[in-house]
Design a protein around this nucleic acid. Structure first.
Length: 815
RNA sequence: GCCGAGGUGGCGGAAUUGGUCUACGCGUGCGACUCAAAAUCGUAUGGGGCAACCCCCCUUGUGGGUUCGAGUCCCACCCUCGGCACCA
């Protein structure tokens, strides 16, 4: 028999396919287990180490679940819309549809060669009209429910490329392609009202089996903030300016207001003599790039508008300024400036020579230096003097409510989700614009709104679809008059926000999915993907699922019960792999040389799965050596066969059984937790124990049944991690096809009881000796055994103050 | 700045509820097999002290603390990585 190789991979992949081993059986829904890896973008390059790490080891997990008796559903698909294909098209002239489908075909082949259990009958491709038809359906559901709306908003605009950029294309305020500073342009676009779900998305997190840091990132992203809205009436009567604050207790220290330059009230407030300065400032702010307005520029600029408001409680005149450190989109776009107790306002007051009054002292009434941003005790605040900050927040908000000038309020950092993209390679937004009827939804029976093939997608400062007359010109579904289609496409995160619902019913052409089936199949039991999606995809998907729940399309709120993030495999130099650094590790070479299982097993063994780490070629050699070591062992066992030996349970037999069963227990437990590296360590220990047994016990005394049992256990434990190799070894031992139809081994607690245990003997907490005692010895027995040890006795000559015994573990003498 | 995760041998990495730190592997030393090499097998391997053994001392980023006992718990600090970042 020759060694394990890629030919073995091919042999078993063929066999699995021919026998339909991994076809999901919808008749066993009761035992279903939905294992999902985040689907990927079909790039032109080959599968990289990251794909393998994510898909390969998730597949290993799924294989264990299968052997544990679950009917595993492990689908795969492609997140195929998106910018790379379009940019590639702009560069080369190759149509995105052409390049994308070619890439998908390549990736399918490679994914097949990976030897995972993917059931391709349920494949999903987001750029296929049979899929995006239902993405459009989803948009219409939100639209009908009032959760999709149109509003003017700034988009990222690259003046050099003459195109709109997605947020992900803006790096540190600059265009990722040409590095020119990105500016904001206002356009009317579609939004999803995700802010309406802020609280539901927050609450839903509590019960999810997700990494705590990921939940925390979502909480921070949503950024719920409790405070108050306070209205400052304008001095000249009529309107008022509303501000949001979390520090209502500092209201008496508010000696001016600051509006964002874009605030709609600015024009109305500015006095005539200040108009020019105000206009100039607004224009200057608008010209500033995102970068200038945020990270670099710390100096607080701003101008006085000439307008005044009236302090809601003291009645004093409060000047109104504009400054671009106030953001229009957060809170009310206006703040009350409390320079004594807010660092930003303090800086602003210093820069513009404004007074800085104190209204809070520290709790011991000492005058802490300003700005003092902690809670404390109120001063200079009229009848609220002496209250603590916490009490004052309530009292002042109550007082404002009585006057009709304010109330407690909650705001969120989360913004509504802008889903329009002025791009070609995406799902067209299924809306029609009619001069008479306004924005009208495309009737569901007319879906899909197909993406036209012949389109000028070169950047010309407008949405590519606008160039297609045939596409744009249509008639209004309501009045029948001439109308125009929306020329924007949907953010690709919309495509991926529901694909997990489509998988179980991917061929359905009547509806996006059958509710009964989806309710039986979801939530996803285990979702695995990179942490880079912690707040984008994972939040959007939860939002969409919550909406579909509220609209009665699914019977569960949360789509992913349990989530794991794989870490990142870095180049051998410890840095992120990239072509420009020349540190990219290509799986293909290793697979050709060693077979895919060696590669997969190294990924399992060499890293903490969640942390990842730097690639090391030596690790591949180590796993290759291990697999060969197992192969040689299995070969020798196959030659000897079962039976024989005198069958008496010797001490060596017991030791082997102990290692066998503790390996079962620990592999099962560790794999469950995605601790694949320690799983492999346990397999190696079992292998070592087998060789040890053979070396220690003379051939005539060897218990072949025990050896065969432990060997089979080893193969079963290895099967999820080395599927082709284990199948081959299983066959060579005469095992029944397939090893993946065998039950996962179960540890026998009786076999894991050792007759004697080693006790650590400590003196004053320091290890001084170890002694062997029968398992289950009493404290006295253990103590006696320890005292009987020469070296220990030497320490105890001056008497013992206290003895601590941990049964079967240790004894500690305190002297 | 705020939030989160983490600092363990030469290296990748292990260590249930506080209970023998360094499992497993790599690398390295020595040995076996071999004409030789590779492969394989065996064996040793945290650092230091001692000619050497029994043995002793030190060691989980740093400094304190709690405890019979701390990688693990508490306090302070240093460093690394990730997220957010004028969010009122």
């Amino acid at each position: 028999m020759t060694g394990y190789s890629v030919q073995i991979d091919e042999k078993w992949q063929r066999r699995w396919e021919e026998t339909g081993l991994y076809s999901f059986d919808p008749g066993r829904l009761r035992d279903k287990y939905y294992v999902l890896s985040m689907f990927s973008y079909p790039s032109g390059a080959k599968l990289h180490v990251g794909h393998w790490y994510n898909f390969g080891l998730t597949d290993s997990w799924a294989r264990m679940k299968r052997m544990q008796g679950y009917e595993v559903f492990e689908p795969m698909g492609f997140d195929a819309f998106g910018l790379p294909a379009e940019n590639y098209a702009i560069q080369t002239g190759i149509h995105p549809e052409e390049s994308t489908w070619a890439n998908i075909e390549t990736m399918r082949e490679q994914l097949r060669a990976m030897g995972a259990m993917f059931d391709w009958d349920y494949e999903v491709v987001t750029c296929d009209p049979s899929y995006y038809r239902w993405t459009q359906w989803l948009f219409l559901q939100l639209h009908r429910a009032g959760l999709a709306y149109r509003a003017e908003a700034p988009v990222n605009w690259c003046p050099d490329c003459q195109t709109v950029l997605a947020n992900e294309q803006v790096l540190d305020g600059a265009c990722e392609r040409c590095d020119s500073p990105v500016v904001h342009r206002n356009m009317t676009q579609w939004f999803f009202r995700i802010t309406e779900y802020a609280d539901r998305l927050l609450e839903g997190l509590d019960d999810l089996d997700w990494p705590e840091r990921t939940k925390e990132m979502q909480r921070n992203w949503i950024g719920r903030s409790e405070g108050a809205k306070i209205r400052f009436p304008l001095a000249d009567g009529g309107d008022s300016i509303e501000v949001f604050t979390t520090r209502a207790d500092t209201l008496f220290g508010a000696n001016y207001l600051v509006l964002a330059p874009e605030h709609p009230m600015v024009a109305r407030i500015a006095s005539q003599d200040r108009e020019r300065a105000v206009t100039e400032y607004i224009e200057r702010s608008a010209r500033k790039s995102e970068l200038e307005r945020t990270s670099l520029e710390r100096e607080k600029t701003g101008v006085f508008t000439g307008g005044y408001a009236k302090h809601p409680l003291s009645g004093e005149r409060v000047p109104i300024w504009i400054a671009d450190y106030v953001i229009l989109s957060y809170g009310t776009g206006a703040v009350m400036a409390v320079p004594g107790h807010d660092e930003r306002d303090f800086e602003f007051s210093e820069a513009h020579d404004l007074p800085i009054p104190r209204v809070v002292t520290s709790s011991d009434r000492s005058e802490a230096p300003l700005p003092y941003t902690e809670d404390g005790v109120l001063v200079n605040s009229g009848r609220f003097d002496g209250l603590t900050s916490a009490a004052a927040r309530v009292a002042i908000t109550d007082a404002l409510r009585d006057e009709g000038l304010g109330e407690s309020a909650i705001t969120y950092r989360l913004r509504d989700w802008l889903v329009s993209r002025q791009r070609y390679w995406g799902a067209p937004i299924p809306m029609i614009h009619c001069d008479e009827c306004g924005a009208v939804a495309v009737p569901i029976e007319d879906l899909p709104v197909e993406l036209p093939h012949e389109v000028d997608y070169a950047p010309r400062g407008r949405a590519p679809l606008a160039s297609s007359e045939d596409f744009v010109k249509t008639s209004c579904p309501e009045c029948g008059g001439p109308a125009r289609r929306d020329v924007d496409t949907l953010d690709t995160f919309v495509d991926s926000s529901w694909y997990f619902l489509r998988y179980p019913d991917s061929a359905n052409d009547e509806q996006p999915f059958d509710r009964t089936r989806v309710d039986a199949m979801l939530p996803v039991d285990k979702y695995v993907g990179g942490i880079e999606h912690a707040v984008m995809h994972l939040l959007y998907a939860r939002f969409i699922n919550h909406v579909l729940y509220d609209l009665g399309h699914v019977g569960f709120r949360e789509p992913f019960s349990s989530l794991t993030h794989q870490g990142m495999i870095l180049g051998p130099d410890g840095r992120r792999m990239s072509k420009s650094r020349g540190n990219v590790v290509s799986p293909d070479d290793y697979i050709t040389d060693h077979g895919s299982d060696v590669f997969r097993l190294y990924l399992a063994f060499g890293f903490n799965y969640v942390e990842g780490g730097a690639w090391e070629d030596d690790g591949i050699r180590a796993t290759s050596r291990f697999i060969d070591r197992v192969r040689r062992w299995v070969q020798s066992v196959a030659e000897i066969g079962e039976g024989g030996g005198d069958g008496d349970a010797t001490e060596a037999d017991a030791r082997l059984a102990y290692v066998e069963h503790s390996a079962i227990e620990r592999v099962t437990g560790d794999a469950e937790e995605f601790h694949f590296n320690t799983c492999v360590a346990r397999m190696m220990e079992l292998t070592n124990a087998l060789y040890q047994y053979e070396a220690d016990v003379p051939p005539v005394e060897q218990n072949r049944d025990a050896l065969m049992s432990a060997t089979k256990t080893l193969l079963l434990l290895m099967a999820p991690f080395t599927p082709h190799f284990s199948e081959e070894m299983w066959e060579s031992l005469g095992g029944e096809y397939s090893i993946f139809d065998q039950p996962w081994p179960v540890a026998d607690p009786d076999k894991m009881k050792m007759d004697t245990v080693e006790i650590a003997v400590q003196v004053n907490g320091k290890l001084r000796a170890t002694v062997q005692v029968p398992a289950g010895s009493t404290g006295e027995e253990i103590e006696d055994a320890a005292r009987g040890h020469d070296r220990v006795a030497a320490y105890l000559t001056d008497g013992v103050k206290r003895v601590i015994v941990v049964p079967d573990k240790l004894v500690n003498f305190v002297i």
